[in-house]
Design a protein around this nucleic acid. Structure first.
Length: 733
DNA sequence: TTAGGGTTAG
């Protein structure tokens, strides 16, 4: 009996104790929800460890959830906490996967998911899958996501609405719109999220028409859209550049009383700027009760894209928080509008200000600006920076580096980067093919094209443009014909205008002018200015007056202000001695106030880019440059150099004036500057905005021999590598 | 005993 009394007492005691514990537990647990800083959370954690409450899986999961999902706690701390939980339950595992899925490192969700399968006694449930699928969408990890989809079906969650909705988004994000649509159509009880997922999938997958159509269908089926729907619809309007429909959507939102939150406001701003009405955007922006970094960046982007850099700068200066995206907007706007120097100035400002840290987008845009300017020192510095900061070299960065090195004249470095990586997508291969092509290595470019086939990478339209360009620069006519004729039947790439222009260039340059004309006549679409330009260039090279007149007529019909066409035609007339025609064209240029684009050459020295215009004497070292030019002239004359005056296109009449004008061509100034400032071991790298003229070409060849210097000159079309009196273009350009 | 899916800038 005694034995009975003891347990009865202890049971009673235990029960009291348990009640107290429950009460205390409840108190501690309820404080978790009230935490508003990581410090408070850590205090609760400590108390739970002291009381042993942390070792109760449910209580631990409460604490963990707060740390994983709260805005004030870091994911690292949460992960640490998770690792301390002796036996995390499925709920806890799911929460960790969820937290990683919306973090900056969604890949961890996969790692944790595999860990769950290995270590958790429960199988994944219907809550697990949406989180894992979300991670797959973020990463566009189509194979992993598809496998996860299969697993969900096996565990008989194939019809769960939440999982299906996540899958629609996942397949959409991976670009498999037909699979997304198949799943969407198969959902028996679609809710508003199902519609939203499909509309966004269309909008983001470059099918804005389908997105808008689906929205109208949703209307017809009386499904009430919410603000998320409208964000997707506005994004489709922005993609379609459909301002009218966009405006209708904005009034629809008002009419239907759809709640306009900050995100929706931003989507409206974005639609207005993308559709070209920055005024509407500015009006809305001014009225917005609340703005976030997105709102500011959209406005900045709007002004920058339309080329209103002053307004963009005002927005930028007013931004309360200058995230890296804002810097990127400015840098890429300058870089893409042919203002690479301004782009580099912003990059410099970013470096000095240390407000934000360059990311991959910054580096891609900056590398492109370096490529445009031929700024190899800065480009190389960025390469070192990437390595130093441990930035992962993705395909985008690799193609930018390859492109930068190739365009700055260092084919070796471009090849080094290309062969140093294992993952190469079609753009990386295409960039390398272009690099070889512009350096006149046509055969190597073609070999690389076939190497790409062996690596099972499918060529696209860019690849073919680059391959054809490579053939053109190297005079590989037969190879060019084969590629052009095989691109559609063998590789499934339909020839576009630029491919026709390349092919006309290949044929024309090699003197097959009639064949080039036949090709133009066979075209099913109207030939563009670039096609006629290629023919005209070839006519100028081979002095074909008849076809030249035809080509320039067509070209001027399409682009009446194309001074290049007039210059080329006058070139043909001058070479064939039709002076009266030359005068007519000169008069036409005067009357229409058409000015020849001034020649401009740039050269990098000690990290600074120096620019020279024709006859420029504004450079601080101008007097040194001109004495150097005189010295060069004397030296070259002694080896038999005669200036070739025909390249002046008879725009200057007096012979001595001509000679003087020739010596003032910008590339000559840049080369002289290079000889003055660069160490004898350094190659002289010059970038010219126009095509190099025959006289400057002969000049550079001789300078390379007389001064024993490598000269790398990039003109509008290609590279000329001068060494020991020869050029890599073999005088075919 | 806890919960999930869809949205905007480069």
């Amino acid at each position: 009996m005694e034995a009975l009394s003891v347990p009865s007492i202890s049971l009673q005691n235990f029960s009291t104790l348990n009640n107290n514990l429950l009460f205390r537990n409840h108190q501690i647990l309820s404080t978790i929800d009230k935490c508003s800083s990581s410090k408070q959370l850590k205090e609760v954690h400590a108390r739970m460890l002291r009381t042993g409450l942390f070792f109760d899986p449910f209580s631990a999961s409460k604490l963990f959830t707060a740390s994983a999902l709260s805005s004030f706690s870091t994911l690292d701390y949460a992960r640490n906490l998770f690792d301390q939980i002796p036996q995390p339950n499925l709920y806890t595992w799911n929460t960790l996967i969820r937290a990683y899925a919306s973090s900056s490192d969604p890949f961890q969700s996969f790692v944790i998911f595999l860990d769950l399968l290995d270590k958790c006694e429960d199988l994944p449930n219907k809550f697990t899958f949406p989180f894992v699928i979300k991670a797959a969408s973020e990463l566009k990890a189509s194979r992993v996501g598809t496998a996860v989809h299969g697993m969900a079906i096996k565990l008989s969650f194939g019809m769960d609405l939440y999982i299906l909705n996540s899958l629609v988004r996942f397949y959409g994000a991976c670009g498999d719109l037909s699979m997304a649509e198949r799943l969407f159509k198969g959902i028996s009880c679609k809710d508003v999220v199902s519609w939203n997922s499909m509309i966004s999938a269309f909008a983001q997958g470059n099918c804005p028409e389908d997105a808008l159509e689906l929205f109208l269908k949703m209307e017809r089926e009386n499904v009430m859209p919410n603000s998320v729907t409208m964000v997707g619809v506005l994004s489709a309007c922005a993609k379609k550049l459909d301002l009218e429909f966009g405006r209708w959507v904005c009034s629809y939102i008002e009419r239907k009383g759809i709640k306009v939150d900050l995100t929706l406001c931003n989507a409206m701003l974005d639609m207005y700027t993308k559709c070209g009405s920055v005024d509407d955007a500015q009006k809305l922006f001014d009225e917005m009760p609340e703005r976030d970094v997105f709102s500011w960046t959209i406005m900045l982007d709007g002004y920058a894209k339309m080329g209103d850099y002053d307004a963009a700068r005002l927005v930028f200066n007013a931004m309360p928080v200058k995230e890296i995206a804002a810097w990127n907007v400015l840098i890429s706007a300058y870089e893409q509008n042919g203002k690479p120097k301004e782009a580099l100035a912003i990059f410099n400002e970013l470096q000095l200000s240390k407000i934000a840290k360059p990311d991959e987008v910054t580096l891609v845009s900056t590398l492109s600006a370096c490529a445009q300017l031929g700024a190899i020192d800065l480009g190389g510095w960025i390469h070192v920076y990437i390595k130093r900061e441990g930035i992962v070299l993705n395909c985008h960065l690799i193609s930018s580096l390859v492109d930068m090195y190739a365009k700055c004249g260092s084919l070796e470095k471009a090849l080094e980067v290309f062969y140093s990586v294992e993952e190469r997508d079609v753009y990386v291969w295409s960039a390398m093919i272009a690099g070889l092509g512009m350096h006149g290595r046509g055969k190597a470019a073609i070999d690389l094209f076939f190497e790409m086939q062996e690596a099972k990478v499918k060529p696209n339209s860019v690849t073919f443009t680059n391959v054809l360009c490579a053939c053109s620069h190297a005079g590989l006519v037969d190879e060019g014909r084969v590629f052009f004729h095989e691109m559609e039947p063998v590789y499934g790439v339909v020839p576009e205008m630029k491919h026709y222009a390349c092919m006309v260039d290949i044929l024309g340059r090699a003197g097959f002018l009639e064949e080039a004309m036949e090709l133009i006549n066979e075209m099913s679409t109207t030939p563009s200015a670039s096609v006629w330009g290629a023919l005209l260039g070839a006519c100028s090279l081979h002095m074909n007056v008849e076809l030249g007149e035809l080509a320039s007529d067509q070209l001027l019909k399409l682009e009446p202000r194309n001074h290049g066409a007039i210059v080329l035609l006058s070139n043909i007339y001058a070479k064939t001695g039709r002076w009266e025609k030359v005068s007519e064209l000169r008069k036409l240029m005067r009357d229409t106030e058409l000015k020849k684009e001034p020649g401009c050459s740039s050269i990098e020295a000690n990290g600074n880019v120096h620019e020279f215009l024709v006859g420029d004497n504004t450079h601080p070292l101008s007097s040194n440059i001109y004495s150097k030019l005189e010295e060069i002239a004397t030296k070259l004359k002694s080896v038999g150099y005669e200036p070739n005056k025909s390249h002046l296109l008879q725009l200057i009449e007096e012979d001595d004036l001509k000679e003087q004008a020739l010596s003032l061509h910008s590339e000559k100034l840049a080369i002289a500057f290079g000889l003055v400032t660069l160490a004898p071991s350094q190659p002289i790298r010059v970038v010219k905005n126009l095509r190099i003229c025959g006289d400057c070409h002969a000049f550079a060849k001789l300078v390379s021999r007389v001064y024993d210097r490598d000269i790398l000159l990039r003109d509008r079309y290609r590279f000329h590598h001068f060494r020991d009196g020869h050029c890599s273009c073999m005088d075919y350009w």
